[in-house]
């Protein structure tokens, strides 16, 4: 009973903060509302018995990604919007279309039936659901059944890192660096040249 009530509260605040995240005036409020939305969705995660995921969400999403957003907002010096602009958005036919879309999706989703199906693969999951912690349970599934996916995700992260570096990498042309190979391969023959020439004769009258 209490949990139901909690679910509704979390859901409401989640929706409200998501709206703020999108339609607020101040860009900083946008990002901070996003963070709030993530917190409350973490709350819902906990209600759904996925506490590990809840905290992972907070650490990664809020701690890393949303902060990054904030960095960018501060760095790029994004100006505030005016209220008129925001309200203007709601007057377009696009918004009506969006509302219609929302209604449609909701109607569709309400038609979903409460089904439970049994699969050979999920047999394992079914049994180990109640006895262990969430992290344990995820680990049991992740490192065994979905091991390949796990590796691939690592690869994705790797590629993302390379991508980020490549994007901002500038080759600096004016820096002089040591080329060790060249240094070691230098011999007397290709670095010294002995030139013989006659001495310069001084003017005898100068002395």
């Amino acid at each position: 009973m209490f949990l139901d009530f909690l679910f509704y509260v979390f859901a409401t605040i989640l929706l409200v903060s998501a709206s703020f995240a999108l339609f607020a005036i101040n860009p900083v409020i946008n990002v901070l509302s996003l963070i709030l939305a993530m917190f409350y969705s973490a709350g819902i995660f906990v209600l759904l018995r996925a506490e590990y995921l809840a905290f992972t969400l907070i650490i990664i999403y809020v701690g890393a990604v949303a902060v990054l957003f904030l960095f960018v907002v501060m760095m790029l010096n994004i100006k505030k919007r005016s209220v008129k602009e925001v309200i203007q958005q709601f007057k377009t036919p696009l918004f009506l279309f969006g509302l219609l879309l929302m209604v449609e999706i909701v109607l569709l989703l309400l038609k979903a039936k409460n089904i439970i199906y049994h699969d050979e693969l999920s047999h394992l999951a079914f049994e180990s659901f109640d006895g262990v912690t969430n992290a344990h349970a995820i680990g049991q599934v992740l490192y065994t059944q979905y091991f390949l996916c796990f590796q691939l995700v690592g690869l994705i992260l790797f590629v993302a890192m390379i991508g980020a570096i490549v994007l901002v990498y500038e080759k600096r042309t004016k820096v002089r660096k040591q080329n060790i190979k060249k240094q070691l391969l230098r011999t007397k023959k290709n670095s010294l040249q002995i030139v013989k020439f006659a001495p310069i004769v001084k003017n005898p009258e100068v002395e």
Binding site: V65, N114, S122, Y146
Partner: peptide, 24 residues
Amino acid sequence: FLKDYAGQVFTVFILTVAAAEAAI
């Protein structure tokens, strides 16, 4: 609701990918 852990596992993946994508 379906008592299947695949959903949560996939959520982990999505989290990862989302982070990478946000960075890029």
